[in-house]
Design a protein around this nucleic acid. Structure first.
Lengths: 210, 210
DNA sequence: CTATAATGCGAGCTATCACTCGCTTTTTCT
DNA sequence: AGAAAAAGCGAGTGATAGCTCGCATTATAG
């Protein structure tokens, strides 16, 4: 009854060895993306760098897109780890403290693997299953909104959805541009000023003014 | 002495007809990008849509990248037209009025050709000569900075470079996300609220508070 | 120990795409 | 009108990338 044509099901990985292969492939994809760019990231090249044959690659991934998607997924998980932690830490804090912390974390998150982040942000065509490279925005939105609604008493009269949208856009953009454009021109002093000013800006939007 | 091997110089366009061909090619590139996406935008396809042969295409453009670069250039010029006009209009106005106008223009600029903007922003790998898809940021920066420095009296003590960086990032991001994500869910009412709040946020960052 | 499944291999097939080249048609110049 | 330059043409070429398939190796089961 052993009816499981081993050529068709491109995915599973039950044994130890195969899980290692899958990891090696994802890791190799990340390395190739960073060191050689998206264009040079052919399936053959990735397999070579992973020390695995193309055939094996296709046993676990239906194609190049899936590989890249896996890399993105892994990277997003790392980022969301930081972000979720920040939100629980900040849940009971007043707006100013919370915003400062969240801005800081946004920058830290973008710094997790700047080279990879750069490639993912600039070279990956968001097409097919890669549509949502920055899917974490959709996950962050509800968190921010929930926090803001829990702090309504501190806040001006402002539509919560709109406030969330503006905050997330602004903070994300500042963090993103800081890490990607200003490269490593980031003295701690600069970062502190940046956080101060961004915090001020966002707090100015949200809080009742005296 | 007629030594100008007509196969080598891929570029010029002296006659009327050839200028039309070049235009048709750029236009076709834009159309294909919008309607079929970056991946389907092969030189053969573009030539076909332009009603021109591949051979002619290569008389004026050294390759696919150059075509796309031309489309980007054209689009950026349109946007910068709006933006430059806004800055001259706004040069002598106080901060609040100016910021409101600039936010409005930022949104209008992103709405010039949203479909194309979307493809350029999401599907074009920024590689080689396409590195600076959003080159206008580098042109906008000095304009903003100059304006802010001319209004120093109205402003808080804040580093002008830092202020410029934060303003541009924030406004650009809000405009970008508004037009690209919120799609056509843009009632005039929503836009007005958005402009109000974004203006408030930015003004809060820049101005002396009483 | 043998059988069966799981994993791994990599030469090679197919499709596609960027790009060329020899030639024709159109325009300009005299 | 004739000649020469400019523009246009499109079948064909070479390279490359994604992906398959038959077979080899390693692990698990009986």
């Amino acid at each position: 009854m052993a009816r499981k044509p081993p050529t068709k099901p491109r995915k599973n990985a039950s044994q130890e060895r195969s899980r290692a292969t899958v990891d090696a492939l994802v890791e190799a994809t990340a390395r190739v993306l960073v060191r050689e760019g998206f264009e040079k990231a052919s399936t053959n090249r990735i397999a070579e760098v992973a020390g695995v044959s193309v055939g094996s690659l296709y046993q676990y991934f239906p194609g190049k897109e899936a590989l890249v998607a896996a890399v993105i997924e892994r990277h997003n998980q790392e980022i969301m780890g930081l972000v979720r932690a920040a939100f629980t830490e900040v849940a009971d804090m007043p707006i100013e403290t919370a915003v400062r912390e969240l801005v800081t974390v946004a920058i830290e998150a973008h710094r997790i693997d700047p080279k990879l982040h750069h490639v993912l942000a600039e070279q990956i065509p968001r097409t097919g299953q890669l549509k949502d490279v920055e899917a974490f925005n959709r996950e962050v939105h509800p968190l921010v909104r929930a926090y803001l609604e829990s702090r309504r008493k501190e806040m001006r009269k402002i539509d919560p959805g709109l406030a969330t949208f503006i905050c997330v856009s602004a903070i994300e953009a500042v963090a993103h541009n800081t890490v990607l454009n200003q490269a490593e021109m980031l003295s701690d002093r600069m970062v502190r000023m940046l956080v101060d000013e961004t915090t001020r800006m966002v707090v100015g939007l949200l809080r009742r003014t005296a």
